[in-house]
Design a binder for these strands. Structure first.
Lengths: 219, 219
DNA sequence: TTACGTTTTAAACAATCGTTTTCCAGCAGG
DNA sequence: CCTGCTGGAAAACGATTGTTTAAAACGTAA
């Protein structure tokens, strides 16, 4: 199928350009010219630029959610009702995140896209991701709840997002940070090296003592 | 001066729209029409859209750096050579961040702009901020170094950026998160409430145990 | 008043955007 | 044969972008 070739060439080029410059700053002409396909091909195969953006995300998130669900299945049977330790949960998530993009382009692109999805409002994107892939996060959050029964629900909610922020923010802006680190310390860090450094920080953050309540705590 | 009125009305409108939609998604016509000034006023008073973006940042970052330098001066004389505790440093930074926008619009706008500066590449912006306001961060990092002498330099560098990511990511995407939290727990969190929750997490993250080294650690 | 520098205004600029239309090439089954 | 369908190519669509131009309005000093 020559059609598939055009589609994947568009997707491969689009994901890189989106990750580099963002959605609004990347025109369809940028994509199609670099991908060596006709301009109209995007609207022909995807329908619109919005749909192309969603397709780029789906190509990462579909295999990710599938594998992550499988991983959680496996964990739940292995621990058979017993709460799964927080470290195991986080480690499993990190491993799944690392696995998926290995087959495709790079983890950098994947993380950068996640960061854009969060910050670059784009209305439709956040809704699409929430609706399409929200279930796996809900499931993960429920397992984290069982792993940290001492945490008030609202406190755990916020800490999960704090940690999500740490990881996505770091890996999303990795290129810029890597440049600074390299010129400051002359050391080049790999993504896996970074995740190794992230783990104890994330675990410590989740297990931090509860904030003292100044007036009254709603938790 | 009627000129100042136009300038500030442009800035006030621009910062809100930039924070809401991003830079590329906000046109000069959006700004000028909402600000009820002529379209050409932007190019007349600021020169270009890029310059307007930088001016928006400068209006927050100039007073911030000035106050933060003053705060650090005060801390250094109070502790007279002794290392300033990490909690004090973080607390001082948080207080300064909270102080500055109180006079103007809202903390939300300030944080959202910082998030955009990080993620929305915009080449010129990152360079501008780094070059214009890098010194105060360098000074802060040096004080953090003295406060955490047991940390390897590279480890501290990364953890500082981890924590920066946590705070900026959280407060930058606050609106979206707040919506989710509100519908999940029915509880409305204020920014100060969030910072109260952030503090123990950040401190714990900075003081986390060092990662075990799998092969060899360069730090 | 006249004159001058500053600010505002309306209009147009060229460039780029996402999308649509039109036409053509290739290949299937009747 | 030609009919129908799919994918690609070129061109044009109208809309919107940041920026510039030129003239009008303003306030102030001579």
């Amino acid at each position: 199928m020559a059609q598939t070739d055009t589609v994947t060439r568009i997707l491969n080029t689009a994901e890189v350009l989106f990750a580099e410059r963002g959605f609004a700053e990347t025109s369809l002409r940028n994509i199609t010219s670099k991908a060596k396909v006709n301009l109209a091909a995007v609207n022909y195969h995807f329908g619109s630029k919005k749909a192309l953006i969603q397709a780029v995300f789906a190509r990462y998130l579909d295999p990710f959610t599938e594998r992550f669900h499988a991983t959680l299945d496996e964990l739940e049977t292995r621990y058979g009702g017993q709460p799964i330790p927080l470290e195991v949960l986080l480690e499993s998530m990190a491993r799944t995140v690392l696995e998926v993009p290995a087959e495709r382009n790079s983890l950098k692109v994947f993380m950068r896209l996640l960061g854009l999805a969060y910050t670059q409002a784009q209305g439709h994107l956040r809704g699409y991701i929430q609706q399409q892939y929200g279930s796996v996060f809900t499931r993960f959050a429920e397992l984290v709840r069982k792993a940290t029964p001492e945490l008030p629900d609202s406190e755990r909610f916020w800490r999960l997002h704090f940690m999500l922020g740490t990881v996505i923010f770091t890996l999303s802006g990795l290129d810029a940070l890597r440049d600074i680190a390299e010129q400051d310390y002359g050391e080049h860090v790999s993504v896996r090296e970074l995740i190794r450094r992230l783990r104890p920080v994330v675990v410590a953050g989740m297990n931090a003592p509860l904030p003292e309540d100044p007036h009254a705590m709603a938790g």
